[in-house]
């Protein structure tokens, strides 16, 4: 089942095109890495999927709907670098923000929402920190907190913008292991710089540099000779301009 489909999509902010003739589809339970140079259009691609931008040309179909505007089934995890690290907010309250809508007046969250948030934080192994303030969390804990915030709305697709940009390598490993586990039920799409690292986890790599090249990694397994693997990586990196 195709969850996201781009057909001949182009986009430009001004006269020079940012994305040209983009065609791809994302199936249920895919785990997709979007890689490419800075300014190659990765963020723009995410914004198009999240309907924050409209394509200049072509059609985007999400959950079979060409005018998909309700974003509840799309979970989004931004980079933490864009937030204030010492923002005076408790972890659990930050996660519960996902339950806010334009008609959320006054202060209360429901008991179910709070229980669900606690459950998700436990699953992400940050349950014990739920009453801590964001300033008291490490980079990895903050990143998990953002993943928790996206998960509380039970998304069908989880979209992450460089989830491991500001964490060290062991935390990076942890986060990918969590994502791999989540991928059993949820389709995952993430932007990253490190194509070799994610190749163990993902089944598709999209190279985005104005054009998009899709690579399937399904046929690459651990049993493959190292040589074959290295060769494919080299080709992907070459095509991605990395």
């Amino acid at each position: 089942m195709k969850l996201v489909e781009f057909a001949d999509v182009s986009f430009n902010y001004d006269s020079s095109p940012t994305l040209i003739d983009i065609n791809f589809s994302i199936e249920k339970n895919d785990f997709v890495a979007i890689v490419g140079p800075n300014g190659g259009g990765k963020s723009t691609l995410l914004k198009l999927i999240l309907a924050q931008l409209a394509p200049s040309k072509g059609t985007i179909t999400i959950f079979g709907d060409k005018n998909y505007k309700s974003l509840e089934k799309l979970g989004y995890v931004p980079q933490f670098t864009t937030h204030q690290h010492d923002f005076p907010l408790r972890l659990i309250d930050m996660v519960l923000q996902s339950k806010l809508r334009n008609n959320s007046f006054f202060v209360r969250y429901s008991k179910q929402d709070k229980e669900r948030a606690t459950e998700i934080l436990k699953m992400l192994k940050i349950g014990e920190y739920k009453d801590r303030f964001l300033s008291e969390l490490s980079g990895g804990q903050r990143q998990r907190a953002l993943i928790a915030r996206a998960l509380i709305d039970d998304p069908e697709i989880l979209i992450l913008d460089e989830p491991t940009a500001s964490v060290d390598i062991s935390v990076e490993q942890d986060i990918y292991d969590i994502l791999k586990e989540l991928n059993k039920n949820i389709t995952i799409l993430l932007v990253t710089h490190d194509v070799s690292f994610v190749s163990k986890y993902v089944n598709k790599v999209f190279c985005v540099n104005r054009y998009l090249h899709a690579h399937k990694l399904d046929d690459l397994t651990d049993n493959d000779a190292q040589e074959v693997y290295n060769k494919s990586m080299k080709m992907i990196k070459h095509q991605c301009g990395l």
Binding site: Q52, L71, P78, M94, L100, R101
Partner: peptide
């Protein structure tokens, strides 16, 4: 008082709040 949570969400993460139709 009425808009407290929405204000905090908007101040903390405008982009995310926008996605939640705030």
């Amino acid at each position: 008082v009425v808009f407290y949570r929405q204000f905090i969400a908007m101040i903390f993460d405008e982009e995310f709040a926008r996605l939640k139709k705030i």
